[in-house]
Nucleic acid binder design. Structure first.
Length: 502
RNA sequence: GGCCCUUUCGUCUAUCGGCUAGGACAUGAGAUUUUCAUUCUCAGAAGAGGGGUUCGAUUCCCCUAGGGGCUACCA
């Protein structure tokens, strides 16, 4: 049977990085088995619908290279893939359960239920309590009919038989068995908007869409037995998908799972793309805008909770697809380690050619109003690339190639600008003026010969030289810098430093 | 509170009964260097605790403790 998996997010906001990992694992599993990856939008909660969230999800998956074979945005034989548009499909299954006596109608209002919960500790709507509630099991049939005809609001609840062993076979955790008495009679069909709840919609759609493997977050493990019962009640046990519940992503520090606030608090993105909340107008930062390569994010996320069992850590999407294995997914939650994420990006940046990096860097230069030919930018990139984690770091590492220092780093001035520095730099400017071949090798030879002949300290001269040209104690080899800047600019900077620093 | 899942270095993890417990990130030290980085080398750093099973337990079982999740007419 062809493997078919689905990623089924709720459009309640930007896709969380944990959701991205769930999507990625689904994708890796599907592609490894030559199967299909579906995208289904689970928008059965009309109250929590957020405009723009669906497009965000699609764009994020695209950016990351997580391809969708079927679903929202691409269509397919089981369309529509948005649950709000499948509304008409669910009612018949609810009726089927009702007719079979496997579900019942309940009239209790939310307020009445709240009352019960306040009154009875650990109240649960189940086999023990449903006899005391207002439903089609306790009311005479005529009254139920009368209430419905009158237009009373009602929900449909599943009727869980108590004291049965329910086993969920999980690909990551093995067999998980619970007693059905701990389950409650979950609402299958809501009165408020006439839509099914997640549980029903999910099971019906997975069945209709011929899903073979349900790979989702661990937060669904407690309701998995309910889903198993639903498959049984609907007569679909033989086509029930295999389950795999993924460990959650945890906060880098402290307790609990990773949340949006952690990103703000610790200063790193928890979303793939920037997101502007349509209501509050506040913006949350994304990995793309923070300068990450999608390959780095994918690689980093793939290894958070899974590893191939080898020492290899840099893995392309293709390698991940080949090596991925659900059974090797860890069982416990993984703390999110942003530092390692940066390291992955550094690695991917180093793997790119200077030309490619220069092209990307050009966008930043253009934004700053700097127009420079690509050959020169490529040369600069080759000198500073290894110092950068992100394309955006390149500017900090190389701005002095494009702009003369506007100020001189104070600490460096104190440490490197000595009493005889002005005279030496003035002298150095004259020496440089006499050089015709300004290549790094030749310039270095001449300058070093001059330093030696004068008996100056090599370090003292070079440090002051660097300060004058760069403005700080940083940067690549001095003569690589001067070669790119050219004779005129180098001399001009030396003279300015002498004037400014005195 | 109840229920379920889980537990190896600070972090992500390897080990599927034989271990001097391996790798990576981070940290520290050293080397290289005209600066800052990079790079390289080295170092420190772990099997939650207690019971079993076994010739032998990190590995299997039980208990306790810690962590996580769920407990809505949300997903």
């Amino acid at each position: 049977m062809k493997v078919r998996v689905r990623f089924a997010p709720s459009p309640t906001g930007p896709l969380h990085i944990g959701g991205v990992r769930t999507a990625l694992y689904n994708y890796l599993f599907a592609k490894q088995h030559g199967g299909d990856m579906l995208l289904r939008i689970e928008d059965t909660d009309s109250n929590r619908f957020v405009p723009g969230a669906e497009n965000y999800i699609i764009e994020a998956l695209q950016w990351l290279g997580i391809g969708i074979d079927e679903g929202v945005g691409v269509g397919g034989p089981h369309a529509p893939y948005r649950q709000s548009e499948r509304k008409h499909l669910y009612r018949q299954y609810v009726d089927q359960l009702l007719d079979a006596g496997l579900a019942y109608i309940a009239f209790d209002t939310p307020a009445e239920l709240d009352g019960k919960r306040a009154e009875i500790p650990n109240f649960q709507y189940d086999a023990r309590t449903r006899g005391d509630m207002c439903n089609s099991l306790t009311l005479p049939a005529e009254e139920v009919k009368a209430r419905i005809d009158r237009g009373d609001q009602y929900v449909v609840r599943i009727k869980i038989e108590p004291d049965e062993s329910i086993t969920v076979n999980d690909l990551i955790r093995g067999e998980v068995t619970i007693n059905s008495s701990i389950l409650d009679d979950k609402v299958l069909f809501k009165s408020a908007d006439g839509l099914p709840t997640y549980h029903l919609a999910n099971v019906v759609d997975d069945y209709l869409m011929e899903i073979t493997h349900v790979i989702r977050g661990e937060e669904w493990l407690p309701s998995a037995p309910l889903h198993v019962i639903l498959y049984r009640y609907l007569g679909w046990s033989d086509r029930m998908p295999r389950f795999a519940h993924l460990p959650l992503l945890l906060k880098p520090d402290g307790n609990g799972k990773l949340s949006k606030r952690d990103g703000d608090r610790l200063g790193f993105p928890v979303f793939p793309l920037n997101w502007k909340d349509p209501k509050s107008g506040e913006t949350s930062s994304g990995y793309r805008e923070a300068g990450y390569f999608p390959e780095a994010v994918v690689n980093f996320l793939a290894l958070l909770g899974w590893n191939p069992g080898t020492d290899e850590e840099i893995l392309s999407m293709q390698q991940l697809i080949e090596q991925f294995n659900l059974e090797k997914v860890s069982k416990s939650g993984a703390r999110f380690d942003y530092e390692k994420g940066k390291w992955f990006n550094h690695k991917y940046l180093q793997m790119k050619s200077d030309e490619e990096v220069a092209d990307l860097f050009q966008h930043i230069l253009v934004e700053k109003g700097i127009i420079e030919d690509s050959q020169k930018v490529t040369r600069i990139v080759s000198l500073v690339k290894e110092r950068a984690n992100f394309i955006t770091d390149l500017w900090e590492q190389s701005s002095f190639f494009f702009q003369a220092p506007a100020a001189y780093d104070e600490k460096t001035v104190q440490k490197r600008w000595k009493a005889d520095s002005p005279a030496q730099m003035q002298e150095l400017a004259d020496v440089l003026a006499g050089i015709d071949d300004f290549s790094p090798e030749h310039t270095e030879e001449v300058v070093k010969a001059w330093i030696e002949s004068k008996g100056y300290g090599l370090g003292a001269v070079m440090n002051a030289f660097r300060l004058s040209v760069v403005g700080a104690a940083k940067g690549p080899h001095m003569f690589d810098i001067t070669a790119i800047l050219g004779k005129e600019e180098t001399i001009a900077r030396l003279k300015r430093a002498v004037e400014t620093l005195g």
